[in-house]
Nucleic acid binder design. Sequence first.
DNA 1: GGAATTTAATGCGAAATGGTACAAAAAAAG
DNA 2: CTTTTTTTGTACCATTTCGCATTAAATTCC
Lengths: 219, 219
Amino acid sequence: MVQKKKKLVAVAKPEVATEPKRRGRPRAYEPDVAIEQALALFRKGGFAATSLDDLSEVTGMNRPSLYGAFGDKRALYLKTYQRYRDDYTVPMVAIFKADIDIRERLRRFFDAALDIYLTGEEPRGCFTVMTVASDAIADPDIRELVYRGFADVDDAFGWCFRTAIKRGEMPDTVDVAALSQMASATLFSLSIRARAGVPRTELDVIVKGAIALLCGPAR
Amino acid sequence: MVQKKKKLVAVAKPEVATEPKRRGRPRAYEPDVAIEQALALFRKGGFAATSLDDLSEVTGMNRPSLYGAFGDKRALYLKTYQRYRDDYTVPMVAIFKADIDIRERLRRFFDAALDIYLTGEEPRGCFTVMTVASDAIADPDIRELVYRGFADVDDAFGWCFRTAIKRGEMPDTVDVAALSQMASATLFSLSIRARAGVPRTELDVIVKGAIALLCGPAR
DNA sequence: GGAATTTAATGCGAAATGGTACAAAAAAAG
DNA sequence: CTTTTTTTGTACCATTTCGCATTAAATTCC
């Protein structure tokens, strides 16, 4: 079984001369970059269909190096999951903090989501949703992670609608929980449709209709 | 590599004495039952994580028999997909044909969906949604299948809302397309949350809120 | 009874998979 | 220069995976 040839892709950064030099042969990769590359792969094929050879190839790291740096395949998957949340989910939710009205908030949020879901050669959708489909049943830890992920999304939308009520953008008679859950449902739907090949133009129409429905008649 | 011991689970039916007897050793399985068993497995783990040994075990068929009866693993997967649509999706949509009002229609539909998604030891969610996650990117044929599947769901909801308008249950000013897409989004969301371990009580609450939002103020 | 037919059962091959052991390479430290 | 440390690179292991070939078993037909 032949290990793949090294590819200087996840290239190590120049040493910053503020700490004692680290002994030993220098790393030929940058862990952060490697995780990002692994994430890209896992987003495409999921856990089971992505092999260590695939990961080795995309990162330019040999398999022993992958193990040394990240642990086993599952551990690497969990790291990529956390990276996805840090790099994509958290910045998305931060969009809500802008001082704009509810419709613009939602519009920007869903736009950002679509940018993420549709970036790359293939539309990959939301990694959290894909993870539920592939690993939630077999792995209770992962199920717990995604369960939490979905609850966080509901909460973010909840905050958003409560803020809209406070700012007088929505009547205080609305059911915030129901709206939040429907907004999350819209997000999941965009993810799934994107991955199923629905074009951006149609997804934009869905966003528009959802915002109209969620926010009610313009005030 | 040891082939698993046979298990008389997918048992052949008694021959109906209306045609010439078929030569050869009798089958020890019933193809329809085997497909159903395979479906159950694929619903749990998806394509890549379900091996032929797994399928062999659950159906009681040796691997050559699986190949002989259904073709390769992917062909079997496609057959199980079709079976899911025939056995679950089509009967669900048939619920809409009952002569009841829109709210009751949606309530029964989502209830039926939850029954399907939550039946079994583990909540498996909707097979179409799970299939998008696992195989849509690598396999254009499967992507086309699920794309169509989602369009069909949108259409069924569309029919439902147009019927409600005709029967005076909803105003004719509503955006039917947006409502349909939101209703589909609700369905996908239920599937994903079910698989993530959200309990039925919470899912029922989501259904209730969704129906209220989709149907607007009671008329 | 033997031949023909169909299916089950067993074994195998080639490749893939996740993971590890060990030697070689590349650096710092003394 | 040697020793220590860290990483790369190669090879290997044990198992699994998918698919197939062949033999044995079970039936019908003549």
